[in-house]
Design a binder for these strands. Structure first.
Lengths: 233, 233
DNA sequence: CGTAGCGGATTGTTGAGCAATCCAACAAGA
DNA sequence: TCTTGTTGGATTGCTCAACAATCCGCTACG
């Protein structure tokens, strides 16, 4: 006989709830946006998209709300929803946040008893990115770069911080979309991420923090150079 | 003639956009929840509330989405929306986050050239809370306590962090609702907040961080003692 | 040149309706 | 008695059609 206690002891969790139609529609838009097929600044008309995805206008609106909360689109009352335009001020804000948050992850990693495991899995991510770079797949490199930093913040152990940071990274991906030449941006970061893994592996807190800081300063500068030239300065 | 540049120079902002009906409905529920009239765990039936607020069911559902994203209610597919139940694990997560984030604010305040102004306005908040305590209005004391810590995090200068923290504090208010005796919880914190203002005013970073840390440890312990006894342990 | 209206297009909101799902109560079987 | 179907009512998920409110580009006018 299995008691309720037994079930709990097994660590069984409530099953992942199926996705609603609105969530599915949102996911469809999400992939279109992150693939760059829906350009930043372009308007998403509910009637048009509802017809394309074969859902009702109301459901479409619900999907828009989801995306708006994630920061992927902007909702202007009575005017419509637009793919988020990431400008100079947004990039500045994102990197201000990263400068505050990522060091927390670095400190947590080095202070953790499982520091070895954490650094090893970070190394795996960089290795995957390096392989993708060799293959010339810069889109994957970008994805792995984002994954790398998400993992760092995750190590801080705060669900709230992780959730916020995931949203920030999704926003950041919007900025990456504006890059004419992904290689120029991502190639140097690959080396920086590898360097960070090395200094983390050596347990050198000061050097690790320095690496993060220079990574962020460099990334911000490069992004601003590109975004600043955009249609909306 | 007033040009667009003139307008921008004056710092004039786009007029406060009127709220949509859904937002208004959400606001109504928000105040009901934070006033404790909608008990945590209770179900919100769309048809019933739509009738009460005299909006359509669709609009009501949109309001639910807004609240769900804020973490005030939980949405279970095909089962309905429920006022968020804050349990032991949620409280632990909230304070883990606060322990990471609030020190960032404290460091930012002491590192700012406007440290004096910042500390002064923090002092005003505590003063207001002390006045409310004298008057026996513990609900206001709680509000000011939350405002105090929101201001600290705001000083870190990250819009992302501030937004996340505001959500966290709204969640925290849900936990406060479960307190049978608000005075017991809030009274000691009043003194701690005053102490923090003092050490901030003295420019003592170590002491300030210590104050924050002991405030958080104390608050977590007290909240866990109450929440742990709740219906959902 | 600036602006005040006009009209089409789009969004905001409503209400009704039906399918899908949940849940509590009951019935059947070991 | 305990477990396992089954069923019916209640509630949510989604759609559809319609109308009101609002925005925006256009035109005409001073």
């Amino acid at each position: 006989m299995t008691t309720q206690a037994d079930v709990l002891a097994l660590g069984i969790q409530p099953l992942a709830r199926r996705e609603s139609t609105a969530e599915a529609a949102a996911q469809a838009l999400r992939s279109q946006i992150s693939a760059g097929r829906l350009a930043p600044g372009s308007q998403l008309r509910e009637e048009h998209l509802a017809a394309a995805l074969q859902v009702s206008r109301n459901t479409m609106r619900e999907a828009f709300r989801l995306l708006a909360h994630e920061g992927l689109v902007e909702h202007a009352l009575h005017r419509g929803v637009f793919v988020r335009m990431v400008g100079v001020s947004e990039v500045r804000a994102m990197y201000a946040t990263r400068r505050l948050v990522e060091p927390l992850g670095v400190r947590a990693i080095l202070g953790s008893p499982r520091a070895g495991d954490l650094v090893a899995s970070l190394g795996d991510v960089v290795t995957a990115a390096e392989a993708a770079a060799t293959a010339g797949d810069w889109h994957v490199v970008g994805t792995q770069d984002i994954e790398f930093h998400r993992a760092i913040v995750q190590a801080a152990g705060s669900t709230h911080l992780s959730a916020m940071f995931s949203g920030l990274l999704a926003e950041l991906r919007l900025a990456f979309l504006r890059l004419p030449d992904p290689e120029t941006l991502h190639e140097p970061f690959l080396r920086r991420n590898r360097g960070l893994v090395t200094s983390l592996g050596a347990g050198d807190l000061e050097k690790s923090l320095g690496e993060i800081d220079s990574y962020l300063a460099d990334a911000e500068t490069r992004l601003l150079a590109v975004v600043g030239d955009g249609s909306r300065p």
